[in-house]
Nucleic acid binder design. Sequence first.
DNA 1: ACGTAAGCGAGACGGTACGTCGCGTCTTACC
DNA 2: GGTAAGACGCGACGTACCGTCTCGCTTACGT
Lengths: 199, 199, 199, 199
Amino acid sequence: MQKSKGIEDLRVYRTRKLLQQAFIELTEEKGFAALTVRDITERAMVNRSTFYRHYLDKYDLLDQYLSEISGLFDDREGQSERSSHEVPSTLIDLLRHMQQFAGFYRAMLGAKADPLLEQRFRQKMEKRVLSCADQARSEQTSPPGAPPINLVYTTTAAAGCSAIVWWLEHDQPYPLEHLAQWLNQFVYDLSGSSLKLNG
Amino acid sequence: MQKSKGIEDLRVYRTRKLLQQAFIELTEEKGFAALTVRDITERAMVNRSTFYRHYLDKYDLLDQYLSEISGLFDDREGQSERSSHEVPSTLIDLLRHMQQFAGFYRAMLGAKADPLLEQRFRQKMEKRVLSCADQARSEQTSPPGAPPINLVYTTTAAAGCSAIVWWLEHDQPYPLEHLAQWLNQFVYDLSGSSLKLNG
Amino acid sequence: MQKSKGIEDLRVYRTRKLLQQAFIELTEEKGFAALTVRDITERAMVNRSTFYRHYLDKYDLLDQYLSEISGLFDDREGQSERSSHEVPSTLIDLLRHMQQFAGFYRAMLGAKADPLLEQRFRQKMEKRVLSCADQARSEQTSPPGAPPINLVYTTTAAAGCSAIVWWLEHDQPYPLEHLAQWLNQFVYDLSGSSLKLNG
Amino acid sequence: MQKSKGIEDLRVYRTRKLLQQAFIELTEEKGFAALTVRDITERAMVNRSTFYRHYLDKYDLLDQYLSEISGLFDDREGQSERSSHEVPSTLIDLLRHMQQFAGFYRAMLGAKADPLLEQRFRQKMEKRVLSCADQARSEQTSPPGAPPINLVYTTTAAAGCSAIVWWLEHDQPYPLEHLAQWLNQFVYDLSGSSLKLNG
DNA sequence: ACGTAAGCGAGACGGTACGTCGCGTCTTACC
DNA sequence: GGTAAGACGCGACGTACCGTCTCGCTTACGT
């Protein structure tokens, strides 16, 4: 029972890590779409058939990788009280994480991205980003003639994502905290589109 | 004299139209990424090798098609005076065009899109959408601590695009004019993020 | 009536000559098998579709060319009496002709030849060469156990052809008359295989 | 230990045999020149791409096949003493082999042959046939005015080949031993062309 | 510590799509 | 009417990946 699941065979662990590492490197270098399984396995110094023992295809590899790091997109703060203009610390954490793997995320979301992945990724981020918006929105009420709330959600998320991508693709030209502040502001502004400010 | 160059061989015209038509249909049906040249030529009832006489590959076909319709993204109004909250008529035109080819644009920008194309497309739209923003911005001045203007550009465009895509993918649940109004509002709001309102 | 058949349209004449000339040059340069119709027409500075107005394909072009020069293979001397060891003057003529178009014949019969053509050509030459053999044979009678006469024919022709090809491919290292003498000798020798010398 | 290299993967062996077999059959049926890779693979019930894993093209397939059977052209008797008019047993072996694969050799050397192959094949046979001639020649001396020895070589080989082809194409109308006898005689006769008989 | 079952390397195989090339047919305009 | 120009259907080519499948070797695990 020592070997409960999760403590895999070392060889398995090594192989998967090598493949993941090669995958990330190559994604940065030439983009996800241009990758072939052969590329990955050659870089990882692993036999091509071994790849298929662990993953269905490169999409599956990405999936599993995203799953591993998806915890970082959760807003662990719950519904703690905070003012709408205050930057939530989890947003800072998210940005920090993306900053750390900037190459990968740039490849994942930027010019050479795959649309499927991009969308999957955006959806994750969407949820995450919007947990901030909830704060803002809860303080407001909808006026007549305002856009539907779902549209505002989507739009806000897209704005937030694009801002982050811009930041990554321009090599993080501003401090992370500034970006966080601006993101927060965007969310607030767009929420305001459909909402009348209280008071 | 009618047949000066520009009025091409009728066969050429026919072939290209058939290929374009098949391409658009299939893009709607199964998405750009899943398309093969064979798919297109079979649908178009044209020999596969004939495809290569006109296009380098499916990307080139898309390119040329986008070029043909790109005129629709120009803001032909120039810098006519209008209030920042007034919806420009060219925005209406653009939306009308996209509404007309909703299937294609949905495929092009939605879940089954190719990222490269999506980006190219977004860039076109970006320019277009931002010509509205210029109006809004020109009436304002930048406060200290505001995000850089390029970031605002990009973010605004992404927001605009995503709103339109949302509208297309939800089968245009609101009148075109409402969407235009909201888009205008988003631009205005986001511009406001970095700008202090005059007066 | 001025334009009786045979005096073709000058354009036709020019086109055919250009094509023939290009064909011969290219056959020497890269061999018949490697030729394409495009090669020929480009060299001849004639449109490819024009080629098909005159010839079915490159084989047909060769055919017609061979027809034009086939007269040279006829033994116009008839059955004039001559001793079997005397070299017939028409053999000299044939070798002279082949010497003149050595490049073409080398290509036609040598390493880069097409087998079909080679055979057709050999058959022509076979008849020609064997008209000499008839002389030799007529002076002899068949012994028992001798090879059938058809086999001797074929074998003799192949020997004669190969001798000529050898001569062409080695850049005619001996005077034409020597070769003719040797050829004659070969014919005589092989005929002797199946025949008992008289007296 | 059985599976040392040389005893290849059974699948490889099977595939190559199937391809070879199909190749030979089709060569007999429609000639080498008219063959396509697809023809061969369809007949062999093998995927077309698999063909290219083993051979560069159909020429390569032929090459390798000829290599496999080329041992049969060697004169393994060495320089054992024998009279010039005695038929060497290896000649009998060669003819027996060609008789066995008469269809293939007929296709390879006859009307539908490819010239390149034909020549390659003739060269092999040339060496073989001439090992007999060496016997004959060694007993003789060159008279003045005789053709050069290389010419005699080539001519003799061509004569020998054509005799065999004639025999194959006429469905072996005479016993193999007779043909061998005649071949031997041809070699002897042609050698005599350039040589004076001793004594 | 060591036997054994797994992971793994090696690579054959059937597929599918690619982009290229050459063929022979054809239409149209020019002269 | 001959020719240039060139579109077109056809079909073979050789290449690149894909995902599946043995088959032995080797190596980490568990007793």
